[in-house]
Design a protein around this nucleic acid. Structure first.
Length: 204
DNA sequence: CAGAAGATCATCT
DNA sequence: GATGATCTTCTGT
């Protein structure tokens, strides 16, 4: 783990991860598989400053999910979901929050995974763990903005890499709210992880 | 062009 | 559990 390393070995650990980001093929698969496999992976973001964190909670948005932006075809906003996999899809919502997603599925087929919570490792010392859970708080902490829409996840600003760590356990939430109609599970997280947000309440 | 909804969050009761 | 902040996107007319 990063906190156990000395400053210089931690630096080379980060550099090594930047040199071997996950390939486009990793993202060019069905969205649920990509979402599940993203848990435990390392996210490096170089915007205002360099941050390194571990992904601990995600949410899958397949093309035919009624809750997905892509469920009613391509629009200017959700166009990135139809484009090259392995890129960022960033959008603005509720007048104040940017959401960070990774584009999935082969080109032409829509899909994305929302990054909901990360565990801070490097460069987020001044930010409490509670500021990196929740998709809106997370982008604030990492400095992700609309201008990062369509940035590749293989650098020079975003990298997602595998450091060999495997979460001991992975859980999927039940069906919630509007998406109860979709008959599938979509949110994945590391159970009992301190950075994972509370499971949302079910409507009704 | 108007109106509504929204992949959220902090705050209040 | 409810509400307000704050604004973009999409839909319907």
């Amino acid at each position: 783990m990063a906190s156990e390393l000395t400053k210089s070995s931690r630096h080379s650990w980060v550099r090594k991860l930047q040199r071997s980001p996950l390939s486009t093929d990793f993202y060019s698969r069905d969205t649920l598989s990509v979402a599940r496999d993203l848990l435990g992976k390392i996210l490096i973001v170089d915007t205002k400053c360099l941050t390194v964190s571990r992904i601990v909670e995600v949410e899958a948005y397949s093309g035919d999910d009624p809750a997905s932006h892509s469920s009613r075809g391509m629009t200017p906003r959700c166009a990135p979901m139809f484009e090259v996999p392995g890129r960022a899809y960033v959008y603005f919502i509720y007048g104040m929050y940017e959401m960070l997603n990774f584009v999935t599925e082969p080109k032409g087929q829509p899909g994305a995974v929302l990054i909901r919570a990360v565990e801070p490792l490097v460069g987020l010392e001044g930010v409490g763990k509670l500021r990196t859970n929740g998709p809106g708080k997370l982008t604030r902490a990492l400095g992700v903005e609309m201008s990062h829409n369509r940035e590749p996840l293989q650098g020079p600003r975003f990298w997602v890499a595998d450091d060999g760590f495997r979460p001991p356990e992975i859980a999927a939430s039940g069906r919630i709210g509007i998406r109860e109609a979709t008959e599938r599970q979509w949110r994945f997280f590391v159970p009992d992880h301190p950075c994972v947000s509370r499971e949302p309440r079910r409507k009704n």
